[in-house]
Amino acid sequence: MNRHNGTSKAFIHLHVNGETKEVGVRNADTLLSTLREKLGLTGAKRSCENGDCGACTVLVNGEPSHSCLSLAVEVVNLPITTIEGLLDSPVREAFVDKWAIQCGFCTPGFIVNCHALLTNHPDANEEIVEEWLQSNICRCTGYQEIKEVIHSLLGSNNHSIKKTHPGLSK
């Protein structure tokens, strides 16, 4: 049993973007607030805080996760990847190439989710793409361009998608 958490606060170790960080948190702190306010990783955006919009998406153990719906203490010992850990991802570049950005607020969440989609399903069919993209909302409604990003990378055997993923362990 995790003995440190018999109180309402704890010092925990989070494995973020390939680095281990010690951070003091309230057990009530979400992963989103911890990333943004304690670790200065502001790429994951605070928006609905209800798991509806996907703007706060990060990878936990390689799977997309709404960081507003996780407590920081829940993800101790699990690899976490934020948008800051995907600087060299071809998905990021493809978002620029395809003009899949308007106001940009939802973009980090979309890139993280798309990166996981292409990692887990390099040959995804339309049904899988639709299913995964339903997790993120773009208020500028730039969905078509975002789908074009996915289609431009599907089946491309783009191995750099995996290599640029320090926090992912499947």
């Binding site: 018999g6 309402s8 057990n27 009530a28 203490v73 829940e74």
Partner: peptide, 11 residues
Amino acid sequence: MISFDFKYFKP
């Protein structure tokens, strides 16, 4: 933000 504190156990 969750306004109240609580203990956390992961048995």
